Simulated scan of single mutants.
Amino acid sequence: MAAVPALAFTRSWQAAACLIILERVGKAIRNPPRDVLLASAAQRIGGYGWAFGIHEACDQFGAMVGPLVVAAVLATRGDYRLAFAVLAVPAVINLCFLTVARLVFPRPQDMEQRTGSEAGGGSFPTQYWVYLFGAGLVAAGFADYPLIAYHWVKHHTLTTEWIPILYAVAMAVSGGAALVLGRLFDRYGSKVLIGLTCVSLLFAPLVFLGGHFGLAILGAALWGMGMGVHESIIPAAVAPMVARSKRASAFGTFTAVYGVCWFAGSALIGGIYDQSVIGAVAFCVITQAMALPVFVWVSWRREKG
């Protein structure tokens, strides 16, 4: 996240754009090996869903606390440089934990018991590619929060001071839901995604067509639950689909395709929104609903095999 504090001191939009791109590149580099490490540790802590759920809960906890710390420093000292410098403290702690993990578990793949299905190599199975297609549809139909916030303010659903509050609510729901949904995934498998997709796609009509405060809160909560699904259940389902020796490339490919689909979908939603709010809602709902038969097939294939 080194690029984010630097954004506060840039003097041009070109520099800001470069820093944003660098921050996203950093995320793309971190995510696949991180997901492989989580998958390797999953057996020791209770399952793939639980491992990814704990990560998402901790991630969203930091997403809530970090801005609050910055706001507190600004309120008491009024110094942006000091506020962002404080964020170096958790970054250093994170590097210390990573160093300890490297020393204690130099071969993280050894934390997981080897089985016959995991020992093999070869190409990715058909199930993986079909699942990636479905996950890409869900990503493409998931609107970003800035567009939602813009809509609320533009249509006077909320005043500007409520925008960060509802975002915090969404992040709290995301972290809490990730833990619960992770346990459900470990117990019931990929079929959990079917119900979760049906529920989370309702965020679009609620946030864009609701028109009043109560529905906006409910929509934000469902949007946050969707984020929890994106960051925990969806990647967790990848791990058991591929051989252990292929997980790094599997997560790398998944992250790349998933990110491209999310970017393309967000651009389309924004373009459609300029022409018709109802059209944007329809795109979000239909695109995510198209993933349902894919998840049904993946769940059936998983149970069969």
Results as ranks from 00 to 15, higher is better:
R11G: 15
R11E: 15
A15Y: 08
I21R: 00
R30N: 10
R34C: 00
D35L: 00
A39Q: 06
S40K: 03
Q43L: 08
R44E: 01
G46P: 01
G46Q: 02
G47S: 03
G49F: 08
W50I: 15
W50H: 13
I54E: 13
E56F: 13
A57Y: 08
D59H: 04
Q60V: 02
L68H: 00
A71P: 01
V73Q: 06
R77A: 11
R77E: 09
G78P: 07
D79A: 08
L82R: 01
A83F: 05
A85Y: 11
V86M: 10
A88R: 03
T99E: 04
R102G: 14
L103K: 02
P106D: 03
Q109D: 14
T115C: 08
G121C: 09
G121M: 10
G121H: 10
S123C: 09
W129G: 12
V130G: 10
G136C: 14
L137M: 02
V138N: 08
A140K: 09
F142C: 07
H151G: 00
H155P: 11
T160P: 01
W162E: 10
I163L: 06
P164D: 05
I165M: 15
A170W: 00
S174R: 06
S174A: 14
G176M: 06
A178G: 05
S190Q: 04
L193N: 03
L193V: 10
I194L: 04
L196F: 11
V199H: 05
L201M: 13
A204E: 00
L209K: 05
G214K: 12
A220R: 14
L222Y: 11
W223N: 08
M227P: 10
S232Y: 13
P235I: 03
P235Q: 05
A237C: 11
S245E: 11
R247V: 02
R247G: 12
F263V: 01
G265A: 01
A267L: 14
I269G: 06
D274R: 15
I278R: 15
A280W: 10
V281Y: 06
L292P: 02
V294A: 14
F295N: 13
W297L: 12
R301M: 15
R302A: 12
